[in-house]
């Protein structure tokens, strides 16, 4: 009866919320809205890195854009006295993600790096994860996409091309994280150092509004940003515990 003994011995572990006692890494991104100009360079970089399809005019008009990283624009006030608020929005990699529990086939789960992983070839396309996500950052492949020549030559070989009927979303460029971890292992080091891995959006941001790193390293750039008093998470009241932290934009003319 070793099976049952084993089961009972690990009972405590199975009943622990979130299962992991501690993540190996806790990848976190901060978005400094004071630095963000809304230039959308991150959007383009993401598109190029992750083989996100270019859906075309018709699909955009029907509301079927595919942008793992999008910049939401909110206008405040009446013309001419208007202010533009730009908020980059992408998968928040919530530690209590509503999208994960709802998948009937476990195509999305929380991995040991604190990332919300999406397994494309397990996905059956119920789209319930997209409904459950309050941030609306999951994108569905309504049909197969194709890349006109020579665009098909620039597809990233490290990232799969998704077929119709599959849900996809930001992965924090998991292919880069994996490469960095492999490189660290080859060098004989135990851990990836701060600054060794950057998602495409962070790498591209001209104003360095995006900072990426391991929250478990107290000296990493991202850990230092977290202590900022402007820090907040989007839709905090929903208790999703996101891994993306925004730094509030403070208006100069505000009292």
């Amino acid at each position: 009866m070793s099976l049952i003994d084993d089961f009972l011995a690990r009972w405590h572990e199975y009943r622990r919320p979130g299962y992991y006692e501690e993540f190996d890494y806790h990848w976190t991104m901060t978005v400094d809205l004071d630095r963000c100009t809304g230039c959308e360079a991150c959007v383009t970089a993401c598109q190029a890195e992750n083989n996100t399809p270019i859906v075309g005019e018709d699909a955009i008009a029907r509301g079927r854009h595919m942008q793992w990283m999008r910049v939401e624009r909110y206008w405040e006030g009446e013309y001419p006295d208007v202010k533009l608020r730009a908020i980059p929005m992408f998968c928040q990699h919530c530690d209590a993600a509503p999208c994960e529990t709802v998948c009937p086939v476990s195509a999305t789960y929380h991995n040991q790096d604190g990332l919300n992983a999406q397994i494309y070839n397990r996905c059956i396309g119920t789209r319930s994860c997209a409904v459950y996500c309050p941030y609306e950052v999951r994108y569905f492949n309504y049909n197969n996409h194709h890349w006109d020549e020579p665009l098909d030559q620039q597809l990233n070989p490290d990232v799969s091309v998704r077929e119709k009927g599959v849900m996809e979303k930001c992965t924090f460029c998991i292919q880069r994280i994996r490469q960095a971890k492999d490189a660290a292992k080859d060098d004989g080091r135990r851990r990836v150092q701060d600054g060794e891995v950057q998602p495409a959006c962070v790498q591209t941001c001209p104003t360095e509004a995006l900072v990426f790193g391991d929250r478990k390293d107290p000296d990493s750039a991202v850990s230092l940003m977290l202590g900022n008093e402007r820090a907040y998470t989007v839709l905090e009241e929903l208790n999703t515990d996101p891994s993306v932290v925004y730094l509030k934009k403070v208006d100069a003319d505000a009292a």
């Binding site: 089961f7 690990r10 009972w11 572990e13 199975y14 009943r15 622990r16 919320p17 979130g18 299962y19 992991y20 919530c94 530690d95 209590a96 993600a97 509503p98 999208c99 994960e100 529990t101 998948c103 476990s106 999305t108 789960y109 929380h110 515990d241």
Partner: peptide, 15 residues
């Protein structure tokens, strides 16, 4: 079956 293949979801326990 939840124990056979551990896939933590949504901050919930395995069981």
């Amino acid at each position: 079956t939840a124990v056979l293949y551990l896939h933590p979801t949504g901050g919930r326990p395995i069981i």
